[in-house]
């Protein structure tokens, strides 16, 4: 671990005044909340900020459910949100995504805001023994594209970065058209979550739209006709405590045996939480017939690009969509 100054500001305004910025390796100051990811990055020398600004006790951690939907304070823990009755009943995909994330110990500590800002599990990003990583050291190259890339993304990639976004929660949230309330020195703004994470393009070191001195204050999930019949499916190499190989979040509005509306997003395959609107459109008005589902799911593969070891994800993600819809569709 490198030497850094830990700031423990008295209030949020003081914290914002440090102009720290999450998720950028070139930022001299960074915010820390639960720290479950940050501490790993510090210990492995992936992050070497001069200053860490603690948000402990400064952000709202309440979970509010109402007719408008759900509001999750950024400081709410994964554990608390996962078992909140309104989340479990009205937004099961969120609860399932959380319970399929990490371990109970991690979920007790990790926060909503931090979950959305956790860094990629790309092993080349996390091993400073590799000099080349455009995300860690802009312009240094990508070790993954021609390397061991079974863990990597097949959609949203660029020639500079194929690192996958690791969050399960974010996948469930983009399926539900959630948004984030950002708070900065200049005030507050609202950003749809789908626009919050940035595609890597040729600036993979910039992962979100957060400005210096800006934090996630809350997550809002609108009430919808689909959320109650939603499901999170996660495929991985072991039964628990592992990031997704491929995951699918689906939410359905059913009219008898027909899909009135569907929301579908994918995890483990995208450089950001990956919603597939074309699949959603193809599902709308259709049945739960496996062949129909499969034809719709195939649209998720449009533009997908495997790099060798991760080629299988293009097929697997389609199957995951089909299965997740079948499971959600079978629910009362």
């Amino acid at each position: 671990m490198h030497t850094f100054i830990l700031e423990r500001p008295r209030d949020l305004a003081a914290a914002l005044a440090f102009h720290a910025q999450a998720g950028r390796n070139d930022a001299p100051a960074e915010y820390i909340a639960g720290g479950t990811d940050m501490v790993q990055l510090l210990q492995e020398h992936v992050r070497r900020p001069e200053r860490l600004v603690s948000l402990a006790g400064l952000l709202d951690g309440h979970i509010e459910a109402g007719p408008q939907g759900l509001r999750l304070g950024a400081a709410a823990t994964m554990a608390d949100v996962a078992v909140h009755p309104a989340v479990v009943e009205q937004f099961p995909v969120i609860s399932e995504a959380l319970l399929n994330s990490a371990s109970p110990q991690v979920r007790n500590q990790a926060t909503m805001g931090g979950n959305l800002l956790q860094r990629t599990r790309c092993p080349y990003f996390r091993d400073v023994g590799y000099a080349a990583c455009n995300k860690r050291s802009p312009g240094s190259g990508c070790s993954a594209i021609d390397g061991e890339n079974r863990w990597h993304a097949v959609v949203g990639t660029s020639d500079d970065c194929i690192a996958a976004n690791p969050s399960d929660l974010a996948v469930a949230l983009v399926a539900l058209e959630a948004g984030v309330e950002l708070r900065g020195a200049g005030g507050q703004r609202f950003v749809p979550l789908i626009d919050f994470h940035r595609l890597p393009g040729n600036t993979p070191h910039i992962e979100s739209v957060l400005e210096p001195g800006e934090v996630i204050a809350a997550i809002t999930v609108p009430a919808s006709s689909t959320a109650r019949r939603s499901h999170y499916l996660k495929v991985r190499d072991r039964a628990s405590f592992e990031f997704a190989v491929v995951s699918a979040a689906v939410a359905l509005d059913m009219d008898g045996g027909r899909i009135r509306a569907a929301r579908v997003a994918l995890g483990g395959v995208g450089t950001k939480p990956w919603r597939v609107p074309k699949v959603e459109a193809a599902l709308a008005g259709g049945s739960l017939d496996p062949a129909v589902l499969r034809r719709a799911a195939a649209l998720a593969a449009e533009g997908a690009q495997g790099r060798g070891h991760n080629d299988f994800k293009i097929e697997l993600m389609q199957r995951a969509i089909v299965r997740a819809i079948e499971t959600a569709g079978a629910r009362a």
């Binding site: 599990r121 092993p123 080349y124 996390r126 091993d127 023994g129 590799y130 021609d146 390397g147 061991e148 863990w151 190499d237 072991r238 039964a239 628990s240 405590f241 592992e242 990031f243």
Partner: peptide, 20 residues
């Protein structure tokens, strides 16, 4: 390419957990 073990950690090197 260089003999490094990219998954030299407990997240990407999977050993069985209780659920397995």
């Amino acid at each position: 390419r260089n003999g490094r073990v990219p998954n030299a950690n407990f997240a990407e090197y999977a050993v069985p957990v209780h659920a397995d």
